[in-house]
């Protein structure tokens, strides 16, 4: 049996042949004999022991616990978005038109800013832009916060709960930030921050909605350190300065390998929360020198393909890649 026959037998088994190809296969006894052998093998590979019911329930429980946390975060994000919209409008008006609202607004804005901070720390930014910036505060209040916002005497339990949920959903750092902001932030700081964050979020959303298509395809062309120069070190894994910008593909590969090692050792901090597909396996953010310009990218590791990718942060498209080296033992 030659290679073509073997490929034909495999494709026949998998139902991947055209009618003509199938007829050719069926007319060849050697191919059909090979198909039977392959069928036995396929059955053997597919004969997988059933998972233990306990393992199944444990896995689903763990995933559903994650879903519950995500749900809280989503609710908080929706709340945050609406509050941010309101806050922007309110903050502008409050300084000149409605100083009487300051007492309420101070706490309200502090909570809103805290929630915004948590949101920026990694919940979900992508959908923020779709929330209407043109809605009036009253409209938003009527539709989303009929109880809390119209009662200016004090924030209601619902508002406080939303902030608490956000704090619960965040990590320790986020919690610290939120508490500090809630306790200490003045009206002016909160107003400024809320406005800045709103603008930032709006920019991000605009980028998303405009479906930015900038795809960089050039190789990094920064000054390549001799330590990373392929011409000088071949395909050996170079030593890297993890703090330094990446200037070459081997350095990129070495950095990705380093991240993988850190992940295996349990030392890698939380991976960036991005809008990119999870299968990219993004592990970190990094500067690379692309066409002589510092560019912020995500670093993704493709273990199947043994590649490390620098991924454009707006489009999630690979910009350049390098080889994934064999990670060192921990």
């Amino acid at each position: 049996m030659n290679d073509d026959q073997f490929l034909l037998a495999n494709a026949y088994l998998d139902g991947e042949l055209t009618n003509d190809e199938r007829r050719i296969a069926e007319a060849d006894p050697a191919v059909m004999a090979e198909v039977e052998s392959l069928r036995d093998l396929q059955a053997l590979v597919g004969d997988v022991p059933e998972p233990e019911p306990e393992a199944r329930e444990a896995a689903i429980d763990a995933a559903m616990a994650e879903f519950a946390r995500r749900d809280v975060a989503m609710t908080t994000m929706t709340t945050m978005t609406t509050m941010t919209t309101m806050t922007t409008t309110d903050a502008t008006a409050a300084t000149s038109v409605r100083p009487a609202n300051r007492s309420f607004s101070s706490r309200y804005l502090a909570i809103a800013a805290a929630v915004v901070a948590i949101g920026l720390l990694g919940v979900i930014v992508a959908n923020v832009g779709s929330q209407g910036d043109d809605d009036s505060a009253a409209d938003v209040a009527d539709s989303d916060f009929p109880e809390s916002v119209t009662d200016e005497a004090q924030p209601t339990e619902a508002t406080a709960d939303a902030a608490d949920d956000a704090v619960d959903a965040g990590d320790a750092a986020a919690t610290a930030v939120a508490e500090e902001m809630s306790d200490e932030m003045s009206l002016e700081m909160a107003s400024d921050m809320s406005s800045d964050m709103s603008a930032e979020l709006a920019d991000t959303a605009q980028d998303t909605s405009s479906n930015a298509t900038t795809v960089m395809t050039a190789e990094p062309t920064g000054d390549i350190d001799p330590a990373y120069d392929t011409a000088q070190i071949g395909d050996r894994r170079p030593a890297i300065d993890v703090e330094a910008p990446i200037t070459g593909d081997l350095q990129l590969g070495a950095f990705g390998t380093y991240l993988l090692e850190e992940q295996f050792a349990g030392r890698l901090p939380a991976t960036p929360n991005t809008r990119c597909p999870p299968e990219l396996n993004i592990l970190d953010e990094k500067d690379i020198v692309l066409n002589g310009t510092d560019t912020d990218v995500y670093i993704a590791v493709q273990e199947i393909e043994q590649r490390v990718l620098a991924v454009d942060r707006q489009t999630c498209s690979p910009v350049v890649d390098g080889p994934l080296f064999t990670p060192d033992a921990p």
Binding site: P49, P51, A62, A63, M64, E66, R70, P277, P278
Partner: peptide
């Protein structure tokens, strides 16, 4: 191994949930 498969399957389930919106 079974234990590794259990771990991997659980982690996969969690990743599915984390990324369901995507």
């Amino acid at each position: 191994g079974t234990r590794d498969a259990d771990d991997a399957a659980q982690e996969a389930m969690i990743r599915v949930v984390r990324n369901i919106d995507r």
